[in-house]
């Protein structure tokens, strides 16, 4: 019998669009992305937790975090290491700039092929900066493996198959699926465990090769004696990709134009909280049969 599973977690660093405050909007009505903190996509954390629970219960299992993004996305890999991932990969290259979901899934699938055999891929159902929920299924198709989306819990783990429960808008389904398999995980799944203090100490200096080149010199000896501090950085030239299928040229969808929405204000009746105004409003709505 094989010993444990090899699990790859797909995670994305996203701008925190959930609490867009006033300072996040520019005067012209567009979003000031720089004012939004970069965070670990929330449902990708649910995915990480799901993977870590399989690891907890199945000795020999390894969890590898894979993220695609600019250099600063190495932060996502470190965050995964602090919470219990065994290692991580940053896929980064200017050639990926402008990727839509299809070009992204192609780059990820090519990288996964280079990373070798795996049993399970898990990712969040969707990222909060686009909400498309496309990359997971697109990766599964490119790897020619089965997918189960909207997963909430893994009910049974067998060397050859999983039993999982998925949560839909209108109910739940329990499915049995053979490995290898790709799962996308809902926010209704258990929250991710917090950082572990020991792991935080262990991986605090984990760096990609690019980050190391910028690191203070006193630390550099660390990376030879402690290989676990090396975050693997992979670039476009290492994944046997067809250049035309990457980045902007590999993206069938193009943005024709974007428009800042400028609202033509209606001629609104303005009221304050005094009793008279609200009394008259309710009276008017009742008389016009809008309410009542």
């Amino acid at each position: 019998m094989k010993k444990g599973f090899r699990i790859i977690v797909l995670a994305k660093q996203v701008p925190d669009t959930r609490n867009v405050g006033k300072d996040a909007m520019k005067a012209d009505g567009t979003v000031n992305r720089a004012a939004l903190p970069a965070i670990f996509n929330p449902e990708d954390l649910n995915a990480l937790e799901l993977a870590l629970r399989i690891k907890d219960n199945n000795p020999g299992t390894t969890v590898t975090l894979l993220t695609m993004g600019p250099g600063r996305a190495a932060e996502i890999v470190r965050e995964g290491l602090y919470r219990g991932a065994d290692d991580g990969v940053l896929l980064t290259d200017r050639a990926f700039a402008g990727s839509d979901t299809l070009a992204t899934s192609y780059a990820l699938a090519q990288t996964i092929k280079v990373m070798g055999e795996f049993d399970l891929i898990v990712s969040g159902r969707q990222a909060i900066d686009g909400d498309t929920a496309q990359v997971g299924p697109q990766v599964a198709e490119k790897l020619k493996i089965n997918q189960i989306t909207y997963v909430e819990e893994v009910l049974q783990v067998d060397p050859d198959f999983l039993v999982v429960r998925r949560r839909l808008d209108n109910g739940v389904e329990t499915l049995k699926a053979p490995l290898p398999l790709l799962l996308t995980v809902n926010s209704s799944a258990p929250n991710c465990r917090s950082r572990n203090a020991k792991l935080l100490m262990r991986y605090k200096q984990a760096r990609t090769v690019t980050e190391r080149q910028e690191a203070a010199e006193d630390y550099l000896y660390l990376y030879d004696s402690r290989p676990f501090l090396n975050i693997l950085e992979i670039t476009a030239s290492e994944i046997f990709a067809t250049p035309d299928l990457l980045g902007l040229s590999g993206s069938p969808t193009k943005v024709k134009r974007i428009e800042n929405v400028v609202l033509q204000a209606k001629d609104a009746v303005r009221l304050n909280t005094n009793d008279e105004g609200i009394h008259d409003l309710m009276k008017e709505l009742i008389e016009s049969h809008v309410i009542g």
Partner: peptide
Amino acid sequence: AFGGNIIAWIINPD
């Protein structure tokens, strides 16, 4: 798009 006050027109030309 982009969690803000932007409307995007997306096309698939090719």
